[in-house]
């Protein structure tokens, strides 16, 4: 029994170090995708509320598509599709050799695009919760529209959007497991390889699921702390709800 657990250790023939590196890859792709996805989501949300019909239509089509297509399929399309497009471009420019898409970038773009589609809904909800009077008051003080957004609206936005964005983060964390299919050595990729090498699937996938669970629990705890911090000074939030 215990000699099996040695497979998870750091000693001779142990997969401990590889698992640790896989965890690092999982965390880095999630953390790299987050700012990109959230920023793109905010842009899409602002377009959804735009006065221009074209921007509104484009952003609605964008969210409909990326919320409706399975993440795995999006990942394949971006990984292989972008590869083909760049390959053509490469040859057209007459560059030597061949272009190859780094899996990390493909994974980041695919997960980021999906994240932006989902987070834009959260951003729209939060934007709607900011009273129009805030923008009017900013205009009356002589702030330009970008200034009003940056200095008045955005700081208030974060507090309202935080729970929804926290959910997006949890979903993203679980979706990173898909990048193993485009050969990015994340937790799933490492454990799949370990399974092939040792024929101990229960042990290794059990270890993988435990790592994911720990990351999720730590995230949930961190999110709770962030919400408490974001809501400090909001009377309705003190005591009663926690």
């Amino acid at each position: 029994m215990f000699d099996k657990f040695a497979l998870l250790g750091f000693g001779e023939g142990g997969w401990g170090l590889a698992l640790l590196q896989g965890t690092g890859i999982t965390l880095s792709i999630a953390l790299a995708t987050l700012p990109f996805g959230l920023a793109l989501g905010l842009v899409v949300a602002l377009w959804k509320r735009s006065r221009h019909v074209v921007l509104r239509a484009m952003s609605t089509a964008y969210t409909t598509v990326f919320r409706g297509v399975p993440e795995l399929l999006t990942l394949y399309i971006i990984y292989f599709g972008v590869q083909v497009v760049f390959q053509e471009l490469w040859q057209w420019l007459g560059l030597p050799g061949a272009f190859s898409m780094p899996p990390f970038v493909a994974g980041m773009v695919a997960l980021g695009v999906v994240l932006s589609a989902f987070s834009s809904e959260v951003w729209v909800g939060a934007l709607n919760s900011i009273p129009q009077g805030q923008r009017e008051a900013a205009a009356a003080l002589g702030l330009s529209r970008p200034q009003a957004f940056r200095l008045i609206v955005f700081p208030q936005l974060i507090r309202v959007a935080l729970p929804g964005l926290g959910n997006n983060w949890m979903v993203l964390l679980k979706e990173t497991s898909l990048v193993s299919v485009i050969t990015l050595p994340d937790i799933m990729f490492i454990t799949t390889r370990a399974n092939v090498a040792t024929k101990e699937p229960f042990l290794f996938f059990g270890a993988a699921i435990t790592i994911y669970l720990v990351i999720s629990l730590v995230s949930a705890w961190g999110m709770g702390r962030m919400e408490i911090r974001a809501n400090r000074g909001i009377a309705a939030f003190q005591g009663a709800t926690r």
Binding site: S177, I187, P201, F202, F205, I209, Y212
Partner: peptide, 19 residues
Amino acid sequence: RGTPLLCQLFLVYYGLGQF
């Protein structure tokens, strides 16, 4: 809810299939 569906699927299909 805290772990990926893919990982759960592998645990059931490969992991439980081990026994």
